[in-house]
């Protein structure tokens, strides 16, 4: 019984008030797996989504799209599938430590973010991947409020970065 229609057997943890805001931000908005019907819809939407996202962004179909915060380069092309920035192994020329003839995905993301003035989204701590959403339609997941909606336009990028850094410094006191 992989995806029962009746969801009462799954704890709805996101609905519970949490004392720790950190735990909440670490998980996707709604942690329930997709229902059988949603799976059917997702299957159809994924077909459409792939036509756009695979050739344009080399989408890896993680179901929790980060494209809008990674300057439209799919971070899941990283061999470690890192969602929060590069590992420590980027070479001097920006090569990937695992496949040295390839550029580090996050190296490309950084330079394109700088070009497109989208550096502030890189400061966000992205939530832990929900494997229930793997190979599902991210569009459906946004619509069903399982994941955050993408912010297609980033305004006042420089000011935002400044604020984030200043905020971090003030937190201590």
């Amino acid at each position: 019984m992989p995806f029962p229609e009746d969801q009462t057997s799954y704890p709805d943890l996101s609905a519970k008030p949490r004392k720790s805001p950190l735990v909440k931000s670490l998980a996707t908005l709604d942690r329930r797996p997709l229902t059988a019907r949603e799976h059917k819809v997702s299957h159809f939407l994924l077909f459409l989504e792939d036509i756009v996202k695979v050739p344009l962004f080399r989408c890896q179909r993680c179901g929790e799209c980060l494209l809008s915060s990674t300057a439209f380069i799919c971070s899941q092309n990283c061999p470690k599938r890192l969602r929060n920035g590069p590992c420590g192994g980027t070479g001097e020329d920006g090569s990937c430590e695992v496949f040295p003839d390839r550029k580090c995905t996050w190296y490309r993301i950084y330079f394109r973010s700088r070009l497109l003035h989208r550096l502030s989204p890189l400061y966000r701590i992205n939530s832990i991947h929900n494997w229930n959403l793997e190979k599902t339609s991210a569009w459906l997941n946004v619509f069903r409020k399982r994941i955050e909606a993408p912010s297609l336009f980033v305004r006042h990028d420089k000011q935002r970065v400044k604020d984030i850094i200043a905020d971090g410094a003030a937190e201590e006191n």
């Binding site: 950190l22 735990v23 890192l82 969602r83 701590i125 832990i128």
Partner: peptide, 28 residues
């Protein structure tokens, strides 16, 4: 098989959440 279920930043946040008394499930 490399797992990489979390990355280092998410791991730090997980430990911080555990210090606050919570597992990732929300269990206190």
């Amino acid at each position: 098989k490399g797992v990489f279920d979390l990355d280092s930043i998410q791991l730090i946040a997980t430990v911080a959440a555990m210090n606050n008394g919570f597992l990732l499930s929300g269990f206190e």
